[in-house]
């Protein structure tokens, strides 16, 4: 498939430049003190915004902690609910399956605006509005469909023969799941986990409605900064946001690789 003409690599390079140049400009903004029109580069640089990010008044630590705990919790809970659901959708056939498939996909497309105001009323009645638990629960709605979708594909590709074999050889359902299925789907779970984490981290409207200002995540900090044109501060927090997402994805990637290699040894032994 490789081509000898230099055209394709050049075009690819152009594409990558277009996609990544904005991120570079963002990094420059984060250290720009003054960048008046029409200079192509800032007139003066300073690390002031970065310094104020690490000062006590920026609330960096609580915001990071809340963001990571929330997104991490959502990821774990979503995976826990997605694995059985995906197993059913991937391996079993049952009446009403197409309707169920549609229902679990719906929140990928139906926006939070549709259900966030009503969910706020619901959570007020349940007494979990303005709480960490409430926001955690709310984030499951946009996150679950991603987990189910990815893991359904994993189960479909996997089939159920290996688990059956284990059962035939005398393993209990729990043993078969724990020692056969789980290691096999672990890489899929890791890559789904990376995505779930990011989907949760990016939720603004749901966090806003159900956290009521008490749960302050990176998205909650970022949107007002962008809206009010605080460009340098917004650049700093954006960089942080991207760094956290990337870091988590890399961790998940490594976990997936480790799972994959342990699966190989599992097969070998």
């Amino acid at each position: 498939m490789k081509t000898r003409s230099p055209f394709a690599p050049l075009l690819l390079f152009a594409f990558l430049t277009l996609l990544l140049l904005p991120v570079l400009v963002l990094l420059i903004w984060s250290v720009a003190r003054s960048w008046p029109w029409p200079s192509l580069l800032p007139a003066a640089y300073s690390a002031a915004e970065w310094k104020s990010l690490f000062s006590a008044s920026s609330r960096l630590v609580p915001v990071l902690l809340q963001s990571v705990l929330l997104a991490g919790g959502v990821t774990l809970l979503s995976l826990a609910a997605s694995v059985p659901a995906a197993k059913a959708l991937g391996l079993l056939s049952f009446p009403g399956k197409s309707v169920v498939e549609m229902l679990v996909l719906a929140p990928v497309i139906v926006p939070p605006l549709s259900y966030a105001p009503g969910m706020h009323l619901l959570f007020l009645r349940l007494g979990i509005a303005d709480s960490f638990a409430g926001v955690l629960l709310a984030h499951l709605v946009p996150c679950l469909p991603y987990g189910i979708r990815i893991l359904t594909n994993v189960f479909r590709a996997l089939g159920d023969r290996l688990e059956m074999q284990a059962r035939v050889l005398g393993a209990s359902p729990a043993q078969a799941f724990l020692h056969v299925t789980l290691p096999l789907i672990a890489p899929g779970m890791a890559s789904a986990g990376g995505l779930l984490f990011i989907v949760s981290l990016s939720q603004y409207l749901l966090t806003f409605f159900l956290g009521g200002g008490r749960i302050v995540t990176l998205s909650m900090v970022l949107l007002p900064l962008v809206k009010d044109g605080e460009r340098a501060a917004a650049a700093v927090w954006s960089t942080l946001f991207i760094a956290v997402s990337l870091l988590f994805c890399l961790l998940m990637e490594r976990a997936a690789k480790r799972c994959a290699s342990s699966r190989d040894t599992f097969f070998l032994s």
Binding site: P117, H120, L121, L124, R125, G212
Partner: peptide, 10 residues
């Protein structure tokens, strides 16, 4: 927010 809270008698 307050209006919703009033509706839910919070």
């Amino acid at each position: 927010k307050l209006l919703s809270e009033k509706a839910a008698e919070k």
